[in-house]
């Protein structure tokens, strides 16, 4: 039952993971990466690993995104052709 609920989630995850490649604005790309990781959090939760889910949520959404954004802030925002 739960497997069928997860299918649309995994599809969204696939779509966002692929769209990260084509996004030119790097900040948007970082946010879409965070979406992919958030869906991973939900998957962990459904696989009955709530502690892993909590760790993943706080590290990915809090710190990884922040470090990416700081790195982009100090270089360039748009990807060059």
């Amino acid at each position: 039952m739960i497997d069928y609920i997860l299918i649309p989630l995994v599809l969204v995850m696939f779509a966002s993971a692929i769209s990260v490649i084509f996004i030119k604005d790097l900040i948007v790309a970082v946010i879409v990466t965070a979406v992919v990781d958030l869906i991973t959090v939900v998957l962990f939760f459904f696989l009955q690993a709530p502690d892993v889910a909590i760790t993943q949520a706080s590290i990915v959404v809090g710190l990884t995104t922040f470090i990416f954004v700081v790195a982009i802030m100090r270089t360039t925002r748009k990807e060059e052709e």
Binding site: P50, D51, T55, S58, I59, G62
Partner: peptide, 16 residues
């Protein structure tokens, strides 16, 4: 559920 790592990271996000 939780433990040392999530707690520490939550503190760090507060500082952030």
């Amino acid at each position: 559920p939780g433990g040392g790592f999530p707690g520490g990271v939550i503190i760090a996000t507060g500082v952030l």
